[in-house]
């Protein structure tokens, strides 16, 4: 179901899966932040200003371990370096690169996964709608998690840990099924990240960046003309 018009509502609609997969994760974040004794304004500002799922969980974890602010900020930087590549990739697909300070803020793994795999050019209103609906899910879910506490049964919450991965799989499977090059690129990237993890490189942010670079280089090598991308 892909709305043809590259409009703001079109972006909102294509972003619905992101909204729904963020909600449970954001609720969990709200819950954990409350457990880490953040107040409600701090918790909501966290999601509203940082808007980065993985780093927020890492930060809570480090806070609980008693880490200092500089250490947490450096870790966040490493975890988020991959967005350099994602933003650059989105940038090559956008029609008129305007409103960049806002569009840059909204680049997440999930909005990027949808925008990056969408054929053809992107428009500014479409991208904005796509990012906004995800943002609402993230900030709204955080507030919901903080306020309502643990209304979710444990078993459902455990199952929902799978939601973001389901989103990535559902976005990757159709193009990977059509193009062996795309499948190879994804598998090489995953193998690099996994391999470094097995070798004991604990910085997930660094591993992911290495995986993305290795995978995309493999794509450039297998397909120097870029035919598989059209």
């Amino acid at each position: 179901m892909q709305p043809k018009k590259d409009t703001f509502p079109g972006g909102l609609i294509t972003g619905l899966p992101v909204f729904f997969s963020y909600l449970p994760i954001a609720i969990t974040f709200g819950l954990l932040a409350r457990g880490a004794e953040l107040d409600m304004v701090q918790t909501i500002s966290f999601s509203a200003l940082v808007f980065a799922g993985a780093s927020q969980f890492v930060a809570l974890n480090l806070l609980n371990l008693g880490a200092g602010f500089p250490e947490i900020i450096i870790t966040t930087f490493l975890v988020n370096l991959r967005h350099l590549l994602m933003s650059a990739s989105v940038f090559t697909k956008i029609e008129k690169p305007r409103w960049t300070p806002i569009l840059g803020f909204g680049v997440t793994d999930e909005s990027f996964a949808i925008a990056g795999t969408r054929p053809g050019k992107l428009t500014v209103p479409y991208l904005f709608g796509l990012q906004l609906i995800g943002y609402l899910g993230w900030v709204g879910g955080t507030a919901l998690g903080y306020i309502t506490g643990d209304f979710l049964p444990d078993i459902l919450r455990a199952g929902m840990g799978f939601a973001l991965y389901a989103l990535f799989i559902a976005l990757l499977a159709p193009p990977a099924n059509k193009s062996r090059k795309i499948l190879t690129v994804a598998l090489v990237a995953g193998a690099i990240n996994w391999g470094f993890s097995l070798l004991g490189l604990t910085q997930a942010g660094v591993r992911i960046v290495l995986g993305i670079i290795g995978g995309a280089l493999t794509g450039s090598f297998l397909d120097p003309e870029g035919r598989g991308l059209r």
């Binding site: 990237a189 995953g190 591993r207 995978g215 794509g219 397909d223 991308l229």
Partner: peptide
């Protein structure tokens, strides 16, 4: 082309491990 393959590489690296 490198940036065009970046989304697929990113999803692979985000999924595994």
């Amino acid at each position: 082309i490198f940036l065009g393959y970046t989304p697929y590489a990113a999803m692979g690296a985000l999924i595994f491990p």
